[in-house]
Amino acid sequence: MKKKTLGILVGVAVLIGAGAWHFTHKPAEGQGGGKSGANAMGQGPTTVNVVAPVRQDVPVLLQANGTVSPISTVDLHPQTTSTIAKVHVKEGQFVKEGELMFSLDARSEAANLDKAEAQVAKDRATLADLERQYKRSQELLNQKFIAQGAVDTLKSQVEGARATLEADIAAARAQKVSQSYTVIRAPMAGRVGAINVYPGSLVQLSTSLAVITQLNPINVAFTLPESSLAALLDAQRAGKVAVQVFQNNSSQPIDGQLSFIDNTVDPVAGVIRVKAQFDNRDTRLWPGQYVNTKLTVQTLKDALVVPQNAIITNTRGTFVYTVAPDNTAAVVNVQRLHAFGTQAAVTGLKGDEKIIVEGKQNLRPGGKIRIADAAGAKHTGKGQQQKGKAE
């Protein structure tokens, strides 16, 4: 009984295996036959779009975000402790160099100056009297009415009086300097900021009266990557380097010139700090404002320009696909000189090639291609010919 059951189970297993083999191998054979047929027929050409490289002058631009900064800013402080007598300017006013801005209470300084000048006058009178006495003593000495010692004493007194006079003259000049501190004038031309004092305010050496900011000319400070330093220095050695800035939401450029390249590269950020100077008579640029900067470091003359989406970069290098005379894909190695927008200036091309821009993802070197525009034109020509025959 056990042997009979075992035989039945073995037979069922054989039948199941045969059925599984039949259903799995029969479609595979059909597929294999189809694939072999396709290979026998050959793969059709790949449809592509092409463009021709363009020769043009390409400016090499460096772009960065910059900050407007004044060339000079002065925070006015008094040089003496006093009270404000009068404020001669208003907030936001443009002042010229030397223009009167603040007057301090000068009564004490004026009195001290008068006292110093009176002392000088007294010293002059004393010196004149001693010089007359010294002169008479010399006459008396010649007549042998006085001794030589008396003449020497008068001579010493004259010299002492002359030294006292010179010291008091210096003290008077010092008082004039102190009195000049009571009048505060603009040290440069610029715009006055907020005024922090009023007539009657007590001011000291640490009191900020106002800030004057020079607005014309004005600087724009920005940073460029370290890799641009060589081209930047070459451009500066060649002559003046033009710089353009654009304000936010404005397409109108403001023209200036490169004025400063820092003497060190920031080793942490890998950037170099530079400045450009701009004429700002119309005050379009304001200190602290953020702007976009464009700097032209060189111009690539008669460069070949191709679309960037035509350039392929992989482990084999950088290249483009071109159309060979036999309508196959050919690989041409190129070097990207400068990229701008959707275009790039390259070397390695002759200029008469047809560069493949669309459809290249399905290409292999030597693969058959069909130009989409040419195919469309051929199809259109056939349609018009058939239409003419029908008419």
Score class of each variant (00 low, 15 high):
N112F: 00
N112A: 14
L113I: 02
L113H: 00
L113A: 01
D114W: 02
D114Q: 11
K115L: 13
K115M: 09
K115W: 02
K115I: 11
A116F: 01
A116V: 00
E117F: 00
E117W: 00
E117I: 07
A118D: 03
Q119V: 06
Q119I: 05
Q119D: 08
V120W: 00
A121S: 14
K122G: 13
K122E: 15
D123Y: 07
D123H: 06
R124F: 07
R124D: 10
R124Y: 09
A125W: 00
A125I: 05
A125P: 01
T126Q: 11
T126C: 03
T126A: 12
L127Y: 05
L127H: 06
L127F: 04
L127I: 03
L127P: 01
L127T: 05
L127D: 02
A128T: 14
A128M: 08
A128R: 10
A128Q: 15
D129V: 10
D129L: 12
D129E: 13
D129N: 15
L130F: 14
L130K: 11
L130I: 05
R132Y: 13
R132W: 08
Q133W: 07
Y134R: 11
Y134M: 10
Y134H: 12
K135A: 13
K135E: 14
K135N: 09
K135G: 05
K135T: 12
R136V: 12
S137I: 03
S137D: 08
Q138G: 15
Q138M: 09
Q138N: 12
E139C: 03
L140Q: 13
L140C: 05
L140T: 08
L140H: 07
L141G: 02
N142V: 06
N142K: 11
N142A: 13
N142I: 02
K144D: 05
K144I: 01
K144N: 07
K144W: 01
F145L: 12
I146K: 02
I146D: 05
I146S: 01
A147F: 03
A147N: 10
A147V: 05
Q148E: 15
Q148I: 12
Q148S: 15
Q148P: 04
Q148V: 14
G149N: 08
G149C: 00
A150D: 15
A150N: 11
A150M: 11
V151E: 05
V151D: 04
D152N: 10
T153W: 02
T153M: 11
T153K: 15
L154I: 02
L154N: 04
L154Q: 08
K155Q: 11
K155N: 09
S156D: 12
S156N: 14
Q157P: 04
Q157S: 10
Q157T: 05
Q157C: 05
V158R: 02
V158C: 03
G160M: 14
A161P: 03
R162K: 12
T164R: 07
E166M: 13
A167Q: 12
A167T: 11
A167W: 04
D168P: 00
D168H: 05
D168M: 00
I169A: 15
I169W: 06
I169K: 13
A170I: 09
A170Q: 11
A170T: 12
A171M: 07
A171C: 01
A172M: 03
A172N: 01
A172F: 01
A172D: 01
A174R: 05
A174I: 06
A174M: 08
Q175P: 00
Q175G: 04
Q175W: 01
V177C: 02
V177P: 00
V177Q: 07
S178Y: 04
S178D: 10
S178W: 01
Q179R: 09
Q179M: 11
Q179W: 02
